[in-house]
């Protein structure tokens, strides 16, 4: 009897598997995951890498001195905004809100207009963003597993740190440190408030951690 039931279950599931699995085996790994709904892509706030024309002028020193093309400046403000709402969702132990914030962050990272990033920083940006997107995506897919979302936040925060070091920020931020997370390995996070509110433990240990660095917006 048990066997019969098992085989019925197995059969049904196999059927479902077949019907949603048309010939998609073994295609390219990496990078072609998460397809975002079209409307999401379109309705993205366009703050990422918005204008602010800045004419870069070389010091006039000889007859061949030139005036460079106006360069649009790139800003990570939208990325920081999404990161902070993700972080705050985890502070409030809200895995569902964290998942939707992760989704939004993924879209924001995905929609960055690369043409406004200065050529010297292209490669570095791509390197960081590729990793950050993967963390954002996993957070978005892990409502119901807040521990796993927090594991990804820890590495995502390292990526954000590198983005801030690379591009600066117009907003004052506090870099906080939680020494306990991941069996004492420790983890950083960024906050818009000076008061410590720990996203790695939430209500269990809200004030655990300390401010390590204040990043002055410019």
């Amino acid at each position: 009897m048990k066997n019969l039931i098992l085989s019925i279950i197995a059969f049904t599931m196999a059927f479902l598997t077949i019907s949603c699995n048309h010939g998609s085996k073994n295609e390219q790994s990496s990078n072609n995951t998460a397809v975002l709904p079209q409307d999401q892509t379109v309705s993205q706030p366009k703050e990422v890498g918005t204008t602010g024309e800045k004419a870069v002028r070389e010091t006039a020193n000889g007859p061949e001195s030139t005036v460079k093309q106006p360069v649009k400046s790139f800003s990570i403000a939208a990325i920081i905004t999404d990161y902070l709402s993700l972080k705050n969702a985890l502070v409030s132990d809200d895995d569902k809100a964290a998942a939707s914030a992760g989704k939004k962050l993924f879209a924001t990272l995905d929609n960055v207009d690369m043409t406004v990033i200065h050529a010297d920083k292209h490669k570095k940006y791509m390197d960081i963003a590729e990793d950050a997107k993967e963390h954002a995506e996993h957070i978005s897919e892990n409502a119901g597993n807040i521990h796993h979302q927090r594991e990804h936040l820890a590495v995502l925060s390292n990526d954000l740190q590198d983005l801030i070091d690379l591009f600066g920020t117009s907003q004052i931020l506090y870099q906080d440190y939680c020494p306990m997370f991941n069996d004492g390995e420790g983890a950083v996070w960024f906050s818009e408030n000076k008061a410590v509110k720990n996203p790695y433990y939430g209500s269990k240990m809200m004030t655990c951690g300390k401010v390590e660095r204040t990043i002055n917006g410019k």
Binding site: A10, T17, I18, N21
Partner: peptide, 9 residues
Amino acid sequence: QPGAWFMAK
């Protein structure tokens, strides 16, 4: 089957 399908997935 159907295990092989799960494995492929």
